[in-house]
Simulated scan of single mutants.
Amino acid sequence: MTTLVAGASGATGRKLVEQLLERGEKVKAIVRSPENLPASWQTNPDLEIIKASLLELSNQELQKLTKDCHAIASCLGHNLTLKGVFGKPRRLVTDAVRKLTEAAKANAPEKPVKFVLMNTSGNSNRDLNEPVSFAQKCVIGLLRLTLPPHVDNEKAADHLRLNLGREDELIEWVAVRPDGLINEEKPSEYEIHPSPIRSAIFDAGKVSRINVAHFMAELITSDELWRKWKGQMPVIYSKEMDPK
């Protein structure tokens, strides 16, 4: 089975590629700059590295890239620099999700393609009418006005929720919402919830990037787990270890 990973050179994208390879998956990794990738990637027969800017690929090129893929994952995000936050493309994630899903649908796959989007716990799932405090609503409203990446994350998830919905015959999807991201070397225990169990603004939890990658890889490779979460926006937290 083959999975296409967009944003494969990012902090979480790298870990997702490695998690998939550990599970025996074949992976196509789209990266803008392959120079700093692990040396082992260059010689792995199960990994194809595509050097490209995703949004610059034509519909025909993306259709060819996705043709033999049973799953697509997006770990794309904006660089935390002035240019990355406020420069173009302001709809990097949204446009990538749209182009990838359209390319996959154009192939008319025999079975629905799994699409896994890495999103954020700061984005509410409006399908569930999740409770959000007035203070958090005010902060989110301010983020929409001042931080283009937040709006991009919302619009990307909205494309899946509203444009594809839960009944699309060619694309099934899950939008994974991590809380505060941290770095860890190995997977640890984590929790998955349909909605946030704490405020993403005023009481954010933590989750390691390797745990997010682990969960995304499990979604892609486990049909049972996929059936449980497809069409939803689960929130992931690393379990807090009891001090001893």
Results as ranks from 00 to 15, higher is better:
Phe134Cys: 07
Glu154Ile: 13
Ile236Lys: 02
Arg98Cys: 03
Gly180Glu: 13
Ile197Gly: 00
Tyr237Ile: 00
Phe86Trp: 15
Arg90Met: 10
Glu191His: 14
Asn59Phe: 10
Cys69Trp: 00
Glu102Gly: 02
Ser33Lys: 13
Ser121Gln: 03
Asn123Met: 08
Ala71Tyr: 09
Leu16Phe: 03
Ala71Thr: 07
Leu225Thr: 14
Asn59Asp: 15
Pro149Ser: 14
Glu18Ser: 10
Val174His: 04
Pro45Lys: 02
Asp127Val: 02
Ile72Arg: 02
Ala73Trp: 09
Glu218Ser: 10
Leu65Ser: 00
Val113Ser: 06
Pro148Asn: 11
Ser121Phe: 07
Ile30Lys: 04
Ile236His: 02
Glu35Asp: 13
Ala6Pro: 00
Ile49Gln: 07
Ser208Glu: 07
Met241Ala: 14
Phe215Leu: 11
Gly122Trp: 10
Asp46Trp: 03
Ala39Asp: 06
Pro243Phe: 13
Met241Arg: 12
Val139Asp: 11
Leu21Lys: 05
His193Gly: 03
Asn123Phe: 07
Pro131Phe: 06
Leu147Val: 11
Asp203His: 06
Ala103Lys: 04
Glu191Gly: 02
Glu169Val: 12
Ser9Leu: 12
Leu128Thr: 13
Ile192Pro: 06
Ile210Glu: 08
Gly13Met: 06
Ile220Phe: 03
Val139Pro: 05
Met241Cys: 05
Glu18Leu: 05
Trp173Arg: 11
Val139Trp: 07
Ala106Thr: 09
Lys186Ile: 01
Pro149Ala: 13
Lys105Asp: 11
Ile171His: 13
Ser238Met: 05
Leu92Glu: 14
Pro196Cys: 01
Lys186Leu: 10
Asp152Met: 14
